[in-house]
Design a protein around this nucleic acid. Structure first.
Lengths: 130, 130
DNA sequence: CAGAATCCTTCATGATACTG
DNA sequence: CAGTATCATGAAGGATTCTG
């Protein structure tokens, strides 16, 4: 059984959502449950291996649930957010808003040229539901 | 000038606060401005090099400000949160609370043995001020 | 369709020694 | 006191191939 001690809660949260593709995965899953092939289509650049890896980690953290349909290949595998996963909604929306704001500040003050493509609306499905 | 594009705001925020020591640094700086030697004392395990590195990154992101006192060695260097840094308060507190809750759930359900040493009160200085 | 197995590259962090 | 410079290492992510 995994054993770990964090200094502060932020670190625990970071451990869950940090990962190159996790924010995007969570965003897509917040809209609706998704099959593996759906996710691969929405994130064409992710490799098979890493997709499985990041989903496994989210499962181990109780954020995502995996369901298999079919008794032999080809299988249908669906990933769904758990209640715990949906409870991330507020945090994700707040982080998105702050991030968008921060990026605007940096660009407007000429410090760096950074942008955010999609706004926090992607997560807002999570706000009323839970 | 640095150029970067994020898919969603969460990623921008993660880029700012992800780093092995950044949450703790932000926590200590949220209490009051700190000298380099103060930070080294509160985080005895951080190496000189990494401390400077993480502070530089926070400065580049406009989160922390650096002030030097004295015209020759030994210098006195003080790090302070900027307005932008203090605006992280709400996000950090929410992330901490969610992280504490999540860790409790995992432990209570027997999935893993994880803990959080200090609670989110460490950041609460930031909530009223800004 | 989903995923396991291998091998490889890159980057964050760390240990150590040195300087104004 | 604060910081730079080097070198080392481990983990995350990626490319490719194979299987039920």
């Amino acid at each position: 059984m995994a054993k770990k001690t964090y200094n502060i809660g932020v670190e625990a949260t970071l451990d869950v959502i940090s990962g190159k593709w996790k924010p995007q995965l969570l965003c897509h899953l917040s809209v609706r449950p998704q099959r593996t092939c759906d996710l691969r289509q929405e994130l064409p650049e992710i490799s098979q291996k890493v997709l499985t890896q990041q989903l496994r980690e989210l499962m181990d953290d109780g954020i995502v649930q995996r369901q298999v349909y079919g008794d032999r290949a080809p299988f249908k595998v669906v990933y769904t957010l758990t209640t715990m996963g949906r409870s991330l909604g507020t945090v994700l929306v707040q982080m998105s808003i702050w991030g968008e704001h921060h990026v605007d500040e940096l660009r407007e003050s000429g410090v760096s040229d950074v942008r955010v493509q999609n706004d926090h609306a992607g997560f807002e499905h999570l706000l009323q539901a839970n």
